[in-house]
């Protein structure tokens, strides 16, 4: 297990380096000049050149890359052009909103998906299965930000039960949590549609395995065989897809944060785009990639903890 973890850790490091290279390439090397974008098309070439020099954009690419990564490793992400403040704290405060939102949404999605997926698999071909599959088909089609708007219409506009948006800050934990509920529902329910289908087919596959019959022949009840024998075997594919889907969840969070005017990472990045604050966007995208890659690393480890075959011959 330790050996396996070290091996995955090496892959993780390599993936992170590759991700940083891609982000750097798209945002800093490809034709197009960040200084030009920042100043807009009306700026004089002299002003653009001056800003480019100030930002170090006139230096060769490897130097700039080294400078970026070196700074990031020391916790120095540079200064935001629009806010004039360090980028690190800016991103940290936005993460304080986005991270809980993503976790709440993922937990909700996983809860719904496991319950509905196992239920549907257990009742394959019957009415219950058809209802779950139909509902998930609709869930796949509904854009999460539209669901978010619909939730606002119902709970904020009509029923006046919840605020239509905004975030009071973690100084008031209960109200802050309350402000995240509708966004988490909008994100989680849509995400659950994909995961329910994955869960159903993974559980169905496990139910057809020979060892299920062995378990039943031992006197294990149908229900207990489902939960103790089939579900653990289905969990590896389910977790893997959950990890991959997390990237989509983060992307969804960016949009849904916008619906509810939450000061999260998504809004920070969008504002930075309209402020032409390229450096903030670059670091925000990189951070998102790091979170997604790290989460998939954790998923790999979790799968290995579940399935002894994945961690090799070490017993």
């Amino acid at each position: 297990m330790v050996l396996y973890a070290l091996q995955r850790l090496a892959v993780l490091a390599a993936t992170l380096v590759a991700a940083s290279l891609i982000v750097f390439a798209v945002m800093s090397i490809l034709p197009g000049n960040a200084a030009q974008t920042m100043l807009g098309s009306t700026a004089t070439p002299e002003a653009v050149a001056a800003l480019a020099h100030k930002l170090g954009l006139d230096q060769p690419a490897p130097v700039r890359y080294a400078h970026w990564i070196g700074g990031a490793l020391r916790g120095d992400f540079g200064l935001s052009y629009a806010y004039g403040s360090p980028i690190g704290p800016l991103i940290a405060s936005s993460l304080a909103v986005s991270a809980p939102l993503a976790i709440m949404a993922m937990a909700l999605a996983a809860g719904i998906a496991l319950a509905a997926g196992v239920y549907a698999a257990d009742r394959r071909g019957r009415t219950g299965d058809a209802i779950v599959m139909g509902a998930s088909q609709i869930g796949l089609a509904v854009p999460n930000f539209w669901l978010a708007i619909l939730l606002v219409i119902v709970f904020a506009v009509s029923l006046r039960l919840a605020p239509a948006g905004g975030f009071p800050g973690w100084g008031e934990p209960m109200r802050a949590l309350g402000a995240l509920i509708l966004p988490a529902v909008a994100l989680g329910v849509v995400q659950a549609a994909v995961l329910t289908r994955v869960t159903r087919s993974a559980v169905l596959e496990a139910l057809n395995e020979d060892f299920m019959r062995t378990a039943r022949a031992k006197g294990v009840s149908r229900r207990s065989a489902l939960w103790r024998h089939a579900l653990p075997n289905a969990l590896v594919p389910i977790l893997t897809i959950m990890g991959l889907q997390f990237a989509n969840l983060i992307a969804g969070a960016i949009v849904v944060e916008n619906v509810f005017v939450l000061p999260g990472l998504g809004r920070l990045m969008l504002q930075s785009i309209s402020n032409r604050d390229t450096l903030v966007v670059e670091n925000g995208v990189m951070l998102t990639a790091i979170i997604v890659i790290a989460l998939n690393f954790v998923v790999d480890l979790a799968c290995a903890a579940i399935d002894p075959r994945l961690r090799g011959l070490a017993a």
């Binding site: 020979d210 060892f211 062995t214 022949a217």
Partner: peptide, 21 residues
């Protein structure tokens, strides 16, 4: 209560008849 206690069964495929986990 009978299965696995009074009547037991041995299956064909020892590869797949045991739970891998």
């Amino acid at each position: 209560a009978l299965r696995g206690d009074r009547i037991a069964m041995i299956f064909q495929e020892p590869m797949t008849a045991l739970n891998p986990l």
